[in-house]
């Protein structure tokens, strides 16, 4: 399948990746090549084949509803680039 710059732009927005204009052509070309490479999958008839999300499947991996200690707040927010009043902080969201 051929990919256009418009599609690359759409995908980049979904992924929250900024594509500089100077990179657009190169990225579209790379993406096109990679997708052409992936298009080989289309040769296979998989109509009767179940998709597998895991290689090794175990069912019902569950834990008991038992409280474990939480972490100290300082440890939770220690790595935050911006924090305030015990919280992670982001640029103001206008709803």
């Amino acid at each position: 399948m051929k990919i256009t710059e418009k599609e690359v732009d759409y995908v980049a927005r979904l992924a929250r990746l900024h594509v500089q204009e100077s990179q657009m052509q190169r990225l579209t070309q790379d993406m096109g090549n990679i997708i052409a490479f992936a298009d080989k999958l289309g040769e296979l008839d998989t109509e009767q084949v179940e998709p597998a999300a895991h290689s090794i499947v175990v069912e019902n991996v569950l834990r008991a509803d038992e409280v474990q200690p939480s972490y100290a707040r300082e440890d939770i927010i220690a790595n935050a680039p911006h924090k305030q009043a015990g919280c992670f902080s982001v640029p103001k969201i206008v709803e």
Binding site: M1, I3, E7, V8, Y10, V11, A12, L14, A15, L17, L27, D30, M31, I34, I35, A38, L41, G42, L44, T46, V49, E50, P51, A52, A53, S55
Partner: peptide, 27 residues
Amino acid sequence: RRIMLGTYALSSGYYDAYYKKAQQVRT
């Protein structure tokens, strides 16, 4: 590049042709 490829393969309209297909090939 990989994030772009993966986002593309999961995006609406392409999921079946790429992601689901790849999972079938896994089987």
